[in-house]
Amino acid sequence: MIIAFFQYIGGLLMLAGSIFCLLAAVGLLRLPDIYTRMHAASKAGTMGTGLLLTAIAIVSFDGAIILRAIAGFVFLLLTAPVAAHLLARAAFLTGHKPTELTIINELDSEKTKK
C-alpha cells in the first residue's frame, strides 16, 4: 500500500521534472538574448533535473540510493548558479549586448564600451 503510494508520487514527480526540462528548452529557443536564455536554462533546467533525481529518491526504498540522489541534487543546486554566473560575466565582458528590450543596464556606461 505505502509502496504503491510512493510509486504514484514518484511517477508524478518524473512527469513534472521532464515538463520543467521541456519548458527550459522552449525558453532557450524563444527568448531574445543570451542573458534571458541563461535565466531559463539554469533555473528551470536545474529544477527539472532535480525533480527527476528526487523521483529516484522517492521510488527507491534504499538509504544509499536516497543519499546519492539527494547529493546529486545538492551538487546541481550548488554548481548551476556558479556556471551561469561565470558564463554571463564572460559574455558581458567580451561585449555581448543585451537585447533592445532591456530597460535597466547598470553596467552599460563603462564596461560595454571597452
Binding site: 514518484g10 518524473m14 521534472g17 521532464s18 526540462c21 527550459a24 528548452a25 532557450l28 529557443l29 543570451i34 536564455r37 541563461m38 536554462a41 539554469s42 533546467g45 536545474t46 527539472g48 533535473t49 527527476l52 533525481l53 523521483a55 529516484i56 521510488v59 546529486g72 546541481l76 548551476a80 556556471a83 551561469a84 558564463l87 564572460a90 559574455a91 555581448h96
Partner: peptide, 29 residues
C-alpha cells in the same frame, strides 16, 4: 545549431548536460 553567438551555444550545451542527467534518472527508474 541556430545560436548566433558562442555563449548561446555554451549555455545550450550546459542545458544538454542537464537533460542528459534527466534521461539517466528516468532510465534508473
Amino acid at each position: 545549431i541556430l545560436g548566433p553567438t558562442l555563449p548561446d551555444r555554451v549555455i545550450a550545451l550546459d542545458m544538454l548536460v542537464y537533460i542528459g542527467i534527466g534521461y539517466i534518472a528516468v532510465v534508473v527508474i
